[in-house]
Design a protein around this nucleic acid. Structure first.
Lengths: 221, 221
DNA sequence: TTGTATTAGTGTATACAGTACACTAACATA
DNA sequence: TATGTTAGTGTACTGTATACACTAATACAA
């Protein structure tokens, strides 16, 4: 039992987990096992412990609920309307995470029934105000493509220029000229050839590239 | 006495209040009357009440501690390292506010001794981690000048182009070409002539302008 | 082995936005 | 009426963004 002389809200860290799969921007959701909103889909997340920072809480929850660690994670916004949660006053510090396509299989580490990936245009009805959180995360992601290298966080270690262009086209929902894209992306000076070539397709093999600064998200222009 | 079956942090809303005065970007600080950090300067702010949203808490605190209302206020970031406050776990949802020069006299509404405006390059040592908060607010402000019309929030109802240019130069800390600035700012289509002219100077009077969408901050480019 | 389907890879011309730059206009005051 | 001070204006140049079409290299099937 913990007592205070003035009322305190509960604080959670919830995470909007994005990945790209099947040529779609997808979102990880968890089906709630308990009331309120039992059976509805919701963002992964949970209470912030007293001895951990907000960032730590977010990455711990991400690991616990999805099995993923070491990915890009950024604080998004804090949501705190009084009646968000019917039980008590809950303030949610929302984060968003970007999972590269090759880390995706880790998703199997969790109970498959309660976890699902949903395309942005086929989202189910969400618990609490999680729809607002998702909307804001999506806006932030789209905005950041314009002035940073966040998109690279969806990439595996080595990749073709076509794969990278695909990521931009999927998120922006519009096609880009191939030559202009290449000129631009190479001009950023953030990627370099590995020397290897892609293999397998019934077509000319593509040069493989890698990030010059893997963990880092750079502000461009 | 308020009891919970797991520990809850306290949540505050603190505000970084900017204005432009004496050709400087200035910050409002409050001298702490009580321990901890008694006597040190700190950001205005306080606990979020259980029946108000975070935005409401921020604008209430702003009003209570500075007498200012109806100004631009935007959530900045949430700070929650475990030992930020020596008393208990405190999570601070930080906001920043922009005060137009003509609303400045309202500052006199508060206890003058405990309140002060400080230029960004003459800040005193701050309580808690408020220096981090200020730094981030300043970065956000500078960044937003590039892609929005936030700077207009420093303007009074009518203003000259020179005054507007000054705001940009002060925040960016660099001079701009007059003709290029005018071409650019008029091209945004966000301001229009009032028909009036400035009066008083020993020089040619300047046309006065007003914002087309006063409350609104537009994303540009 | 040859043909076909498929993706990889490349350059140039044009439009547009950003930048550099200097003089005249209108007022207040001495 | 002369002087000091800020307001106001246009053009040439530079660099970035855009539009656009063909050849290269592989897998596979005939």
């Amino acid at each position: 039992m913990y007592s205070y002389d003035h009322p305190h809200p509960a604080v959670t860290a919830d995470i909007v987990v994005f990945t790209i799969r099947d040529n779609q921007l997808k979102l990880l959701l968890i089906r709630r096992a308990y009331s309120p909103h039992k059976g509805k889909w919701a963002l992964p997340g949970g209470f912030v412990n007293m001895n951990e920072s907000l960032d730590e809480a977010a990455s711990r929850e991400l690991l616990e609920e999805t099995g993923v660690s070491g990915v890009y994670l950024e604080q998004l916004y804090t949501f705190g309307k009084p009646k968000r949660d019917p039980r008590e006053r809950v303030i949610t510090v929302a984060y968003y995470a970007l999972i590269p396509s090759d880390k995706m299989q880790l998703q199997a580490a969790t109970d498959a029934d309660a976890v699902g990936w949903f395309g942005m245009d086929e989202l189910p009805k969400l618990a609490f105000d999680h729809e607002d959180i998702v909307k804001m995360a999506h806006q932030r992601l789209v905005a950041k493509l314009d002035y940073s290298t966040v998109a690279f966080q969806f990439l595996p270690e080595s990749f073709t220029l076509h794969e990278l262009q695909n990521i931009y086209e999927i998120i922006f929902q519009e096609e880009t000229d191939k030559r202009n894209f290449r000129k631009w992306i190479l001009g950023l000076g953030q990627i370099e050839e590995t020397g290897e070539k892609s293999t397998g397709g019934a077509h000319r093999p593509a040069k493989l590239f890698k990030k010059k600064f893997p963990g880092r998200v750079t502000i461009i222009k």
